[in-house]
């Protein structure tokens, strides 16, 4: 067998001729740049890449990628992406959505794409605000968020995207941050390599309507105490001096200080491959300031994709009954002949 080198691409080849029109300083620029970078070495020719999006600031993303792209309608991107994968399992499909598009108007489709484990890489840009409609609170806005549509503060309890994805049985669940470019790139590459639905929440700063909302995990002086970078097989340690960790007390997690009474061996060890989603679920509930917010791969397991299931049924039917014969199909009923 001859060895064929996987195709490599340059970021320039992946850049379309359209001018990028996000606000200056928007987190989306970084995500776009890391996406292009991640794809240079994924080995997928650019004609086999499809970017599908819904509506919102982030959903303009496909226009800036020199691949096939489909900017669809609000909330429904998972459905179009599903159709593309059904028709063409040879294509790699990325879906770009936001907290409003993916979790509010399109929540239903997101859940069902994940439970089917259809092979779509879903990037949810979470900026906790509606940006394109100029600043209303979103389903991930923290309770009490004051916006134009919640002048006295939002009343509703926010959704946690990762908790939802896990409940929907997603096989790959991760979180990363727009400005942490190295981490972002590596997560995108891991998602690209995953077989089945991949769900990535990206903390993304909206410079105009919700600036600084994620400073506690991005600011150099704050982040080490507020962000826990997950590593498979490693104990959960964080903090400026890496002296803090997560320990389980009964069924509840707690933040502990590593000292003579509590060693690294007492800490929870991350296992992204765990057959059960329990640990990932537990981590998905961590919220600042009581707990560090976990960044990295929460869950990365293999289970059959929808496309595989469908293809298996097709092959089984062909094996059992042979290729469909139209004439036989037409005549598969009581017949009568008129001379």
């Amino acid at each position: 067998m001859s060895i064929t080198a996987l195709p490599t691409l340059t970021t320039k080849e992946l850049t379309s001729d359209q001018e990028v029109r996000w606000c200056p300083g928007c987190g989306d620029y970084s995500i776009l740049a890391q996406m292009r970078k991640a794809l240079t070495t994924c080995g997928i020719p650019k004609e086999n890449l499809v970017f599908v999006s819904g509506i919102g600031c982030s959903s303009r993303f496909p226009y800036y990628m020199n691949t096939y792209g489909f900017h669809t309608i609000h909330g429904r991107a998972p459905t179009f992406a599903t159709g593309i994968r059904l028709a063409r399992p040879d294509l790699q499909v990325w879906m770009i959505t936001g907290d409003g598009d993916g979790l509010s108007i399109g929540g239903n489709h997101l859940i069902h794409a994940l439970r089917r484990n259809i092979d779509i890489k879903i990037l949810l840009f979470n900026n906790e605000i509606y940006g394109l409609t100029k600043g209303q609170y979103s389903p991930t806005s923290r309770q009490g968020t004051k916006t134009k549509s919640s002048p006295q503060g939002s009343i509703d309890n926010p959704l946690r995207p990762l908790t939802l994805a896990l409940a929907a049985e997603a096989s790959f669940v991760a979180r990363t941050i727009d400005v942490d470019v190295t981490h972002l790139t590596s997560i995108l590459q891991k998602a690209a390599a995953h077989k089945g639905s991949a769900f990535i929440e990206i903390y993304q700063n909206c410079k105009i309507f919700n600036d600084g909302i994620f400073d506690y995990v991005t600011d150099r002086t704050l982040k080490s105490d507020n962000a826990l970078y997950l590593e498979h097989g490693k104990p959960m340690i964080f903090g400026k001096d890496r002296k803090k960790g997560i320990r389980l007390k009964g069924l509840e997690p707690e933040v502990v200080t590593i000292d003579k009474d509590c060693s690294e061996n007492d800490l929870l060890v991350h296992d992204e491959k765990a057959p059960s989603a329990t640990l990932a679920y537990l981590l998905s509930r961590f919220a600042n300031p009581k707990f560090p917010e976990c960044v990295g791969v929460y869950r990365n397991v293999e289970r059959p994709t929808y496309e595989e299931g469908l293809e298996n049924q097709i092959q089984a039917q062909l094996a059992a009954k042979g290729k469909g014969d139209l004439e036989k199909l037409f005549k598969n009923d009581d017949l009568w002949v008129v001379e």
């Binding site: 489909f70 459905t79 159709g83 593309i84 239903n108």
Partner: peptide
């Protein structure tokens, strides 16, 4: 594909057409 709702059903069909089916 039995879709999760009517919107998804048409979305799947349009996506399939985009992909060449």
């Amino acid at each position: 594909l039995q879709a999760e709702d009517e919107i998804a059903a048409v979305g799947v069909a349009i996506g399939a057409s985009f992909a060449g089916a």
